[in-house]
Lab assay of single mutants.
Amino acid sequence: ETIMEVNLLKGPKGLGFSIAGGIGNQHIPGDNSIYITKIIEGGAAQKDGRLQIGDRLLAVNNTNLQDVRHEEAVASLKNTSDMVYLKVAKP
């Protein structure tokens, strides 16, 4: 597993990826991690090219996303300014 830091500039459609996982909404049984499950065509993440489906999202800005509820992860992604710092684990 490789840890990678990505600074992503939000586009008109936001960050351009979808997530799944978290406490109460496990993407993988027994694993509370938050995973990237979709990269949106023409979105910021696709244009940047570094994020991939299956990457594990560890942090957004200063918010640690390990062992959080799905709703908390979504809220932390929404409550960001235009430049967003992401910390991901690549499988």
Results as ranks from 00 to 15, higher is better:
K47W: 07
L58D: 07
R56Q: 15
N7A: 06
G21Y: 02
Y35G: 00
S33F: 08
L57K: 01
S33C: 12
H70S: 06
Q26N: 13
R56Y: 02
G24P: 09
D67W: 11
K47Q: 08
A73N: 00
G49S: 06
S81N: 15
D82M: 08
E71R: 08
I39H: 01
G11E: 14
D82C: 04
Q52S: 14
L9C: 08
G43F: 04
A44T: 14
A45K: 00
T63H: 15
L77M: 14
N64P: 15
M83W: 12
G21H: 02
A75P: 01
G43E: 11
V60G: 01
Y35D: 00
T2K: 15
A20F: 05
N25H: 11
T2F: 15
G16I: 00
E72Y: 12
N25Q: 08
N79K: 15
Q26C: 15
T63I: 15
N61K: 03
G22D: 02
I36L: 05
I36R: 00
V60C: 08
K87W: 02
A89N: 08
N7K: 11
D48H: 13
A45G: 04
L86S: 01
T80R: 05
V68G: 11
H27W: 07
G43Q: 08
N62G: 13
E71S: 15
S33V: 03
R56L: 07
G21P: 03
E41Q: 15
S81T: 13
V74H: 12
G30H: 14
I39K: 02
H70G: 12
G24H: 13
R69N: 14
F17H: 01
N64F: 15
Q26A: 12
H27G: 05
A44E: 14
V68Y: 06
N32W: 04
G30M: 11
N62V: 08
L57E: 00
G21C: 03
V88N: 01
T37Y: 12
N7Q: 10
T2A: 06
E5T: 10
E5L: 11
P12H: 05
G49A: 07
K10C: 06
I53A: 11
V60H: 02
Q26L: 10
I39F: 08
H27S: 12
T2G: 12
S33T: 13
N32D: 08
P12T: 08
Q46S: 13
G14A: 04
L86C: 03
T80L: 14
V74Q: 05
A89T: 06
I34S: 02
T63F: 08
G49C: 04
L65E: 01
R56G: 02
L15H: 06
V68H: 07
I23H: 10
D55N: 11
A59V: 13
M83V: 13
A89P: 01
K90L: 03
F17V: 09
G49F: 02
T63W: 05
I40N: 12
N62I: 03
N79A: 14
L77F: 11
G42A: 11
N61Y: 03
A89F: 15
Q46L: 05
D67L: 08
N64K: 10
V84Q: 03
D55R: 01
T2W: 04
V88D: 01
L58I: 14
K47S: 12
N64E: 12
E41K: 13
L58Q: 03
R56K: 13
K13C: 04
I3A: 05
I34F: 08
I40T: 11
K87A: 03
L65V: 09
I28C: 07
V88L: 11
V68A: 09
D82N: 05
I19S: 03
D67K: 03
S76R: 08
Y85V: 13
A59L: 09
L8P: 00
E72T: 12
E41Y: 07
L57T: 01
A75V: 13
L86G: 00
K38D: 15
A75L: 13
N7F: 10
I34H: 03
D31I: 04
D55S: 10
V74K: 15
I40Y: 08
T37F: 08
A44P: 13
K87S: 09
S33Q: 06
P29V: 14
R50K: 10
F17R: 00
D67M: 09
G16Q: 02
L65F: 10
V60L: 10
G24E: 11
D67P: 03
L15V: 05
A75I: 09
L15F: 03
I36F: 02
I34P: 02
T63P: 00
L15Y: 02
P91G: 10
I19R: 00
A89W: 14
K38A: 15
Q46P: 01
I23M: 08
E1R: 05
K10W: 02
S18C: 07
I19G: 01
V60M: 09
P29Y: 13
Q46K: 14
D67I: 05
I53M: 11
H70N: 10
E72W: 09
G54D: 04
A45L: 04
S76I: 07
K47R: 07
T2P: 04
Q66T: 10
E5W: 04
I3E: 05
I23C: 12
G42N: 08
S76A: 09
I53G: 12
L9Y: 08
G24D: 10
E71L: 08
A45R: 00
A20K: 12
T63K: 10
T2V: 10
N7S: 09
I23T: 11
I23P: 05
S76T: 11
P12I: 07
K87H: 02
E72H: 11
L15A: 04
L77S: 01
P91C: 04
I34R: 00
K10D: 08
G30Y: 05
S18R: 15
M83P: 11
Q66C: 08
N25M: 12
N64I: 14
K87M: 12
N62E: 09
Q26G: 09
L15N: 02
S76K: 14
G16V: 00
F17Y: 01
E71Q: 06
K90I: 08
D48A: 07
P29M: 15
D67E: 11
Q46R: 13
N25Y: 11
E41V: 11
D67C: 07
T80Q: 12
R56H: 06
G11T: 14
N61M: 13
A75D: 13
L8R: 00
D48V: 03
V74R: 13
A89D: 10
E72N: 07
P91E: 12
K13W: 09
L65I: 12
E5F: 09
D82F: 03
A89V: 12
G49L: 06
A59N: 12
G11S: 09
A45Y: 01
A89S: 09
V84A: 12
L58R: 03
G22Q: 02
K90H: 05
P91M: 05
G22L: 01
A73Q: 01
A73V: 10
K78D: 13
E72S: 09
Q66M: 15
R69K: 12
L58T: 14
I28F: 14
A20V: 14
N62A: 12
V74C: 13
I53N: 10
G30W: 04
L77V: 10
G22P: 02
D82P: 14
T63S: 14
V74T: 09
Y85R: 10
R69P: 09
T63V: 15
S18G: 09
T80H: 14
G21W: 02
H70Q: 08
I40A: 13
S33E: 07
G54M: 09
N61T: 03
A89L: 10
K13N: 04
N64W: 08
L57V: 11
Q46Y: 10
K47T: 15
Y85H: 15
S18A: 12
N64M: 14
L58N: 03
E41M: 05
I34T: 03
L58V: 14
K38M: 11
I23Y: 12
M83K: 10
E5I: 15
N25F: 10
T2L: 11
V74N: 06
R50F: 05
M4C: 09
L57F: 02
S18Y: 14
A59I: 14
